[in-house]
Each structure stands twice: as structure tokens, then as C-alpha cells.
């Protein structure tokens, strides 16, 4: 008999993933409206990291440390978080089209953030925590509402029912958001930010919050890999083999809501990231969540960093909203998956 095959990745694979991600990150820091030589970039990063003083390219230092690095970090973390959420939702609901965007969770979260800003809801001492907390709460509320509606209509939670409800809810939430934005015009500077998403002007603080959320809640989701496998085979089967169905579902949904809420409050709604990456990766890693979920972190980070690079450079010096790029790729992917799953039946 052959040795029992490992379910997760081995260390060399993780090292490879990290190397690729770092390479993409370096590329995205170097390329932009001003091209920077990679060696100078590395030197600036090294000096920035160690605090060393040295003969550095002055211009490179002024571009990288305050502007490009925080932005690229935020993009990578948002990409990783959204992709992880997509992968987890697709497993939990046994639905390859599930994603924060298609289920309307992102729109819900952005409605929360818009409400907080328009009505000046904030936590004392933490200026941007108000919109973040509201985004998380609204994300969870939307998810709970959509799922309970879907269960009521169709207890087997078929692909079409849940996506339809998601789309309708998404339109509803967006319309309320637009309404609030119209009446609170001066408070919310750019409407496109909330509808299309952008990480222009991201700060290290943003990156830190994203990292903390990903480490805690993303870690929890990845820890549920086996349970998500069982859900992906079928919720009844999960119950039969001894998965605490209710607890796992609640845990994963709360984690997803927090991650999406935090991402939306930092970056606006960046559509379809959670749809694209898990789908592309599944053909490499297979559907097993113990491999798929860790892979989505790296894949999502790379995908969004490259999309952001495209958004920044395609129509240089003008910048496209990041969401335009991802939605373009994502909607193509959505049609492809839908078409293939229909054909397969």
C-alpha cells in the first residue's frame, strides 16, 4: 500500500509561493508612472526596513516609502482576504459562483461604510473605525439576510436561487448607498471609490488593520479546511460524518463578514476577486480546501497586485479604478463558470 498522501502543501511549496508573491510585489513597486530600477528599490526597502542610512536614490525613496509600498501592501492583503472569502464561501455553500460580490455582501458592507460616514458615526479615538465596524456589521447582516431568504425559498440552496437573491440584494443596497451619497455629497468625496474600489492613498495603518484581520479571521477560516471539504461534498454529508454544521457555518460566515467588511471600508468594493482566484487555483490544487485556501492567499495577493498595476499603468498618467479591471476579468469568468456548469449537467 502506498503511503498516505498529505492533504496540505509541503514547506518547499510554501517557500515557492512566498517567493513568487514577493517577486510580484517587487515588480509592482518598481513599475508605475515613474519607473524605478529594481536594485534601487531593493536598497530603499532594505534601508527602510533596517533603518540604515545610506547613499540611496532620493527620488525612489520618496516614491516608494510613502506611496507605493503601503499601496501595494494593502492591495496584496485585500486580494488575499477577498480570495480566501470567496474560496471559503464556495465551499460552504457548495456553489462555485459564490463570492462577496455575487452574494451582495460587498454592497451591504459598503452601504454600512457609507452610512457611517454620511451620518458621522464614529468610535471615539479611532477615526476610521466607525465606518469599518459598520461595514462589518452590515456585511454580516446582509449575509444572514440573503442566506435565510435563500433557505426559505429553496432549502437545497441551489446555485441559481442564491445568486439571484444576491444580485437583487446587491442592487437594493447599492441604490440606498447612492441615495445617501446624493444627499451627503460633500462628506463623501468620490462616489466611484465606493462603487468601483480603489486603493489610492492607502496608508501603513490600513495595511496593519488588514493584516491583523487576515491573521485572526483568515487563520480561523483556513483552520476549518476539513469542515469546508465536508460542506463542499454536501451539507447533509457534513452532518452525517460528525461536523457541527451550525457552529462551523456561523464561524465561517462571521469570519467572512469581518474580512469583507474590513476590506470594503479600506478599499471600497472591488468586485469578483473572490470568484476569479479560487476558480483559477482549483484547477491546479484541486478542490481540497486544505490546499485551496492557503493557495488563495498567495494567488489572490498576486492577482490583485497585477490588476492594480494594470489599473495604474494602462492609461498612464490617468488611473483606472481597480474595480474596473477586476470586474472586467471577473464577469468574463462568471459567464465561463456558469456556462461550463450548465453544460456539465
Amino acid at each position: 500500500m502506498k503511503k498516505r498522501s498529505r492533504e496540505g502543501f509541503s514547506l518547499p511549496i510554501y517557500i515557492l509561493f512566498t517567493a513568487v508573491t514577493l517577486a510580484v510585489m517587487l515588480l509592482c513597486i518598481c513599475v508605475g508612472s515613474v519607473m524605478l530600477p529594481p536594485m534601487d528599490t531593493l536598497e530603499v526597502l532594505w534601508n527602510g526596513l533596517t533603518g540604515a542610512q545610506g547613499p540611496v536614490n532620493e527620488m525612489a525613496a520618496n516614491i516608494i516609502l510613502p506611496v507605493r509600498l503601503p499601496r501595494v501592501l494593502c492591495v496584496a492583503l485585500v486580494g488575499a482576504s477577498l480570495s480566501l472569502c470567496g474560496g471559503a464561501m464556495q465551499g460552504l455553500l457548495k456553489n462555485p459562483l459564490a463570492d462577496g460580490t455575487t452574494l451582495g455582501v460587498s454592497s451591504g458592507a459598503s452601504l454600512g461604510a457609507v452610512t457611517a460616514i454620511a451620518f458621522g458615526i464614529s468610535l471615539p479615538g479611532f477615526p476610521f473605525a466607525g465606518s469599518m465596524v459598520m461595514a462589518v456589521l452590515f456585511a454580516f447582516g446582509s449575509l444572514a439576510l440573503i442566506l435565510s431568504l435563500a433557505y426559505k425559498l429553496d432549502s437545497s440552496l441551489s446555485t441559481n436561487t442564491i445568486i439571484l437573491i444576491g444580485v437583487i440584494f446587491s442592487m437594493f443596497a447599492s441604490s440606498i448607498s447612492s441615495l445617501i451619497i446624493t444627499f451627503a455629497g460633500d462628506k463623501i468625496k468620490t462616489i466611484t471609490f465606493w462603487t468601483m474600489g480603489s486603493l489610492q492613498g492607502s496608508s501603513y495603518e490600513n495595511a496593519l488593520v488588514l493584516l491583523a484581520a487576515l491573521a485572526l479571521f483568515g487563520g480561523l477560516v483556513i483552520g476549518c479546511g476539513r469542515e469546508l471539504n465536508a460542506f463542499a461534498v454536501g451539507e447533509d454529508n457534513a452532518r452525517n460524518i460528525g461536523v457541527n454544521v451550525r457552529r462551523v457555518k456561523l464561524t465561517v460566515l462571521i469570519c467572512i463578514s469581518v474580512l469583507i467588511g474590513v476590506c470594503v471600508s479600506v478599499s471600497g468594493t472591488i468586485g469578483f476577486v473572490g470568484l476569479v482566484t479560487p476558480h483559477m487555483l482549483r484547477s491546479i490544487t484541486g478542490p481540497n480546501h486544505r490546499r485551496l485556501l492557503p493557495a488563495t492567499l498567495f494567488g489572490g495577493a498576486c492577482f490583485l497586485m497585477l490588476s492594480d498595476l494594470l489599473a495604474r499603468t494602462l492609461l498612464n498618467p490617468r488611473e483606472l479604478p481597480l474595480g474596473v479591471v477586476t470586474s472586467f476579468v471577473g464577469s468574463m469568468m462568471f459567464i465561463y463558470i456558469f456556462y461550463m456548469s450548465r453544460k456539465g449537467r
Binding site: S5, N95, N229, A232, V233, G234, N240, I241, G242, G286
Partner: peptide, 29 residues
Amino acid sequence: SREMARNIGVLSQNHYVGYGFTVEEVIRL
């Protein structure tokens, strides 16, 4: 839940698996 599954096992009538898990992965669950 786990204790329950160690006592009682259920085979239902039809299965539609959403993703292409291998037979071995499903059995090992």
C-alpha cells in the same frame, strides 16, 4: 456532533457533489 457520528451513520439516497473531489478524499472524510 462527532460522538453522534461515531454512533450513528447515515447513507442517503442521492448525492450531488459540487466539486471534483477524488473518491479517496470523499472516503477519508
